[in-house]
């Protein structure tokens, strides 16, 4: 009975009382999202509520993120905007780490293996793919590093200024000359490159000897792409509007 209702309601949203194990059973694509929150396996039959409490995780935030990943039609923009910036930023930085420490090296690993196993006449082509991905990786790193080292601290300083009502000239200057609006945005090129890479592999790379590795590579590229889409959505639809509001409040507060 349980099992059939689970199968039928595949898109049903997760709630506080859903067992954490069921989240993964229903959608294994959520495995990296859960671990991004610092949750490890071995949670027995505990519910989402219980696991989050144990790990000091804001359970409402966890639910909104997991549900919006699980069901692309579900995107509670308004609710998400109510969470503190620090929480959203922490999640986004963890996601950055996941891309750079886990996803990108994994993809590079596959490309390297393909190079190792390549036939002489196809090696040049795989090297082209390799260069293309490295170029993409550099751009991605630059983009994420800029967010981590400039954009996120700026947002935190806005929050702090509003809390302490202490508005220094630098911050006001930043809002006037370098507001968040300017930071919207160069995700476009990164997305296009990833999509190009997929097409190069699917349509144009002459068949490789290591077909299985090529399949893994392609699968990982699709996963990275969909993860990035979600990431971008949170940045553009949740974080940026929130920061615009903060900027406005700061400007109003100091006249």
């Amino acid at each position: 009975m349980e099992l059939t209702s689970r199968l039928i309601n595949k898109d049903l949203l997760f709630s506080l009382n859903t067992q954490m194990a069921d989240v993964i059973h229903r959608n294994y694509g959520l495995i990296p999202i859960i671990s991004r929150f610092g949750i490890n396996f071995g949670f027995g039959n505990k519910t989402i509520y219980e696991v989050c409490a144990e790990n000091n995780i804001n359970v409402r935030f966890f639910l909104e993120i997991v549900n919006s990943f699980h069901n692309p039609q579900y995107f509670p923009k308004k609710q998400l905007q109510t969470f503190p910036s620090a929480l959203i930023i922490q999640y986004l930085s963890n996601t950055h780490k996941y891309y750079l420490k886990s996803k990108v090296p994994e993809i590079i690993g596959y490309i390297n293996k393909m190079k190792e196993l390549a036939s002489d006449d196809n090696l040049k082509n795989i090297e082209l793919i390799d260069n293309f991905f490295r170029e993409y990786k550099n751009e991605l790193e630059k983009h994420l590093a800029n967010e981590d080292s400039r954009v996120f601290p700026y947002i935190m300083s806005l929050e702090e200024a509003l809390e302490t009502m202490d508005f220094n000239a630098d911050l006001i200057d930043h809002i006037r000359n370098d507001s968040i609006e300017k930071y919207e945005r160069n995700h476009g090129n990164l997305e296009e490159k990833l999509s190009d890479l997929k097409n190069l592999l699917i349509k144009f790379l002459p068949p490789v000897v290591s077909t299985e590795i090529c399949q893994h590579l392609l699968t990982e590229l699709f996963r990275l792409e969909s993860d990035l889409e979600n990431h971008t959505r949170i940045e553009e639809k949740v974080l940026v509007p929130r920061v615009k509001l903060l900027e406005q409040k700061v400007l109003e507060s100091c006249g």
Binding site: I129, E192, D196, F204, L205
Partner: peptide, 17 residues
Amino acid sequence: KLGIKTIAGLTVYAIMN
């Protein structure tokens, strides 16, 4: 026709072919 948008991607295609 190709499904490739970026200059870098077109470059790879052009060299590959």
